[in-house]
Design a protein around this nucleic acid. Structure first.
Lengths: 230, 230
DNA sequence: GCAATAATTTAACCAGGGTTAAATTATTGA
DNA sequence: TCAATAATTTAACCCTGGTTAAATTATTGC
C-alpha cells in the first residue's frame, strides 16, 4: 500500500517507537528481545528495526545492550500515545465501551486519525487529562504528566487507599476488577497481606475481597485522605 | 507490518476491490487504466493486482478488456463501503464534520474499525439508510438500495426538483454547493438552460443561482411533488 | 579464567505492492 | 487491409518488514 501523504513514518515504525517508549519508562532502556516479544516478531526483525530507527535518528542504540528513544523518537511516541488514549476515552465516554474493550480498538485506530479528528474528540471530551485506565494523556505539544499511584502490593494492612490507575494490558484482568467493583476512584482498606507472596484481603464498602499479589501489582493507588467533618 | 488477525485480505486488496465496485456501477466493467487512475498507481500495478484478485476469486478478468467483481468480491466491497458510509455519517452527526470533510477521514478509518464499532455507531445513528451525500448504506448482510435521483443536467426549465444525492468525489464542489444553499432535500425550480452546454439557472427559495452543466451533472434530483392544501 | 549458555546480530531468503521500460495486443483511420 | 497509435501486459527491478539459520558477543557458573 502507498504511505499516506501526511505521515512521515510507516505504521510499523510508529508501533515500534511506541512500544520502546512504553517499555523504557519501566526499564530505562529496552533489549532487543523485550522489544521483539512486545511486537510479536522475531529478535532478528527487532534488531533490523532498531537499526532503521537509529539511522533515522529516532533512537540511540548500544550494541548487545539496548535501545532508547531520541527526543525525536519520543515526540512521535507521544503523538501516537496521545491518539491512543484520547480514542480510548472517546470510545468509553461517547460509545459506551467498557475499559477492557477500548485498548484493542484504539490500537488499530491510533494510526489513522487526522489532526482534525484528534482536535474534535479532545474538545468533545473537554480536554481530558487521563484515559479510562488512569494513564495520563500527552498534550498536543508533547508533554506528559507522570503516571500516578504506587503498586497496591506495596501497601500494608491498615492503609486506606484510592485507585488511581490500572495496567491496561490484560482485558480479562480488567473485567475481573470491574466485577469486584474495583474501578478508578474506588476507596478501599487493606485488611491483610498473606506471607510468601500470598493474597491481599481488601475491604471495599462493606465487602471483603481477596486478590492475588500479581494482580495487586497491576493496581496503582495512593493514600486516601479521609474526609473530616468541618 | 503484520496483517491483522481478523482480516482476510490486505487493506490494499480492500481498496482495489472497493474501487472496482464503484467504477463498475457506472460502467459495467473496469479497464486496467481506469482502475490505475483511481488508485493513483501505474497501469502495471493495476494489472498485477487484477491478476491477484482473479487468483483469489474476487474478480473475473478478460484480458485486454476489463475486470468485474465476483459475488465474493462484491461482498467485500459492500462491507468496506458500509464502513465508509456509516463513518461518514457518524462524523457528520456526532462530531460536526461538514459533508465535504467526511470522505477523506472515512477513507482512512474504514479499514480499521471492528464489527463492534460498526454495530455501535449503526445503532447510535438509528440504523441509517443513507450517508451525508445521499448514497445508500449497504446492510450488514450485503444488500444495498439503488442510488436515487437523476442528474440535474438532464432536467428541463419548468421542472421543480428536490436534491436526493450528490457526487462525493470533489470537496471543493461540495463546499461550493453548501455555499449556494444546495443540500440534500433542497427544493428548486429550473428556470433556464443555456444552449451549447451552457449554465443552468435555478430558483432556490427567493434566490436565483446559475451553475455550470458539469457541476449540475454531480447533483441528482427527483421531481418534487408540490404540497397541496387539504 | 574459561567453558557453557543465552542474547544478539548477520546472512540469506520470501512476499506484497510498488516502479519503469519493453513487448504485445487491440483499435482506428487512411 | 494494414500501419500507426493506444492500451495492456510482462519483465526486471526496488523497498519494507517479515522469516530461519548461522555466527558472534556477553554473561554466568564452576
Amino acid at each position: 500500500m502507498q504511505e499516506s501523504s501526511e505521515r512521515l513514518f510507516s505504521q510499523t515504525v510508529e508501533d515500534y517507537v511506541k512500544s520502546i517508549y512504553l517499555l523504557q519508562q519501566d526499564f530505562g532502556s529496552v533489549s532487543t528481545s523485550e522489544l521483539a516479544k512486545k511486537m510479536k516478531t522475531s529478535p532478528a526483525a527487532s534488531t533490523k528495526m532498531i537499526k532503521h530507527l537509529t539511522e533515522n535518528r529516532l533512537a540511540v542504540h548500544t550494541r548487545y545492550y539496548g535501545v532508547r528513544l531520541s527526543p525525536a523518537g519520543e515526540k512521535i511516541a507521544l503523538e501516537i500515545i496521545r491518539h491512543h488514549r484520547l480514542i480510548e476515552l472517546y470510545l468509553h465516554q461517547a460509545l459506551g465501551y467498557e475499559w477492557d474493550e477500548v485498548d484493542a480498538e484504539a490500537e488499530k485506530l491510533e494510526h489513522h486519525i487526522s489532526e482534525e479528528f484528534e482536535a474534535r474528540i479532545d474538545k468533545m471530551l473537554d480536554y481530558p487529562l487521563t484515559d479510562p485506565h488512569g494513564d495520563p494523556i500527552p498534550t498536543r505539544d508533547g508533554n506528559i504528566a507522570p503516571r500516578r499511584g504506587d503498586p497496591l502490593d506495596k501497601s500494608e494492612p491498615g492503609d486506606t487507599l484510592i485507585i488511581l490507575r490500572v495496567r491496561d494490558s490484560n482485558p480479562e484482568a480488567l473485567r475481573y476488577l470491574s466485577h469486584l467493583e474495583m474501578k478508578l476512584g474506588t476507596v478501599m482498606e487493606v485488611m491483610e497481606k498473606q506471607p510468601f507472596n500470598g493474597p491481599m484481603t481488601l475491604k471495599i464498602g462493606e465487602k471483603i475481597h481477596s486478590i492475588g499479589r500479581e494482580l495487586a501489582g497491576h493496581i496503582f493507588v495512593e493514600r486516601h485522605q479521609v474526609e473530616t467533618a468541618v
